[in-house]
Design a protein around this nucleic acid. Structure first.
Lengths: 146, 146
DNA sequence: ATAGGACCTGAAGTCGCTAGAGGTTCAAGA
DNA sequence: TCTTGAACCTCTAGCGACTTCAGGTCCTAT
């Protein structure tokens, strides 16, 4: 039991290290019920399992990709219940797929615009810098999202 | 003088209209020192010049492209000094472009997984759902941006 | 036994806005 | 000239998703 604690369970700092997530953020996720609470030592410190590590990695990834905390909650629910009927899962997945595609489309526009801006490496001075020019003048902007 | 005020200077509502920026947001930008303060009428209302219109358009455009307020502050400083070398502006844009591309790459991975999931009109259970897995496990992630 | 690093809680601050309350000014029509 | 109502003003609080801080407690290696 003592050995279990020492060998299998991660203190919050280790979990943070392993996921690239800040300690405070982990506590925050726990607080808002996104990450299940870890057990505590007799001295009230959190100890996490490999399962927590998985979930937190998932959360980090999804946040990086721009999913809201609520969306992540949905996705986690999906994975938590393997017996869940498929229609529901499909619906959630489909909704998120649409969302992902919209995000991709938007980012591709941005990419093109930024590319265009930086491609013409300017002659040296701000006066004829493409970046500034494009930003200053809507007319020079190719994408249609605005 | 009176005519100047009426003809050349824009009240905040007009500026908002012309730039597609909300009135509150304009006041906010002024407050944080991103947009220079406009003059005031004797009754304390803001009046803006064409110069403000230009700057605000620049800000809006840059925000649309995902630049942070701080990045915009830098870009504005750069653009104010036309003799300055433009490598700096390039660098800001290039960093942002790299960021955008990394996000696109990851979203595409996710898109594929979500697609796969919904396409399979699945066999009954979540058990073999890889969405969570893909996001949770770095090792299963194909792209190399992290 | 003790030093000092890791951990705890709760509250407040950050960013980039947005919304609301409650009051003042401007400009066009009677 | 007066009136009316749209547009403006300031100040405060709220949002999501954290981050930082103050002031403590715990854990573990020596």
């Amino acid at each position: 039991m003592r050995a279990d604690l020492a060998e299998r369970l991660l203190p919050i700092g280790r979990l943070a290290e392993a996921t690239g997530c800040k300690i405070e953020t982990i506590r925050y996720y726990e607080q808002i019920g996104l990450l299940p609470e870890g057990e505590r030592t007799s001295g009230n410190q959190r100890r996490y399992t490999r399962r927590h590590l998985q979930i937190l990695s998932f959360i980090r990834h999804a946040r990086d990709l721009g999913f809201s905390v609520d969306a992540i909650r949905d996705l986690l629910k999906l994975s938590a219940d393997p017996a869940r009927p498929c229609a529901e899962a499909d619906a959630i997945a489909a909704a998120h797929l649409a969302d992902v595609r919209a995000k991709i489309a938007r980012l591709r526009n941005l990419e093109q615009e930024l590319e265009r801006m930086t491609r013409l490496h300017c002659s040296g001075a701000i006066a004829d810098c493409r970046v500034i020019e494009v930003l200053a003048d809507h007319g020079k902007c190719m994408h249609d999202s605005h």
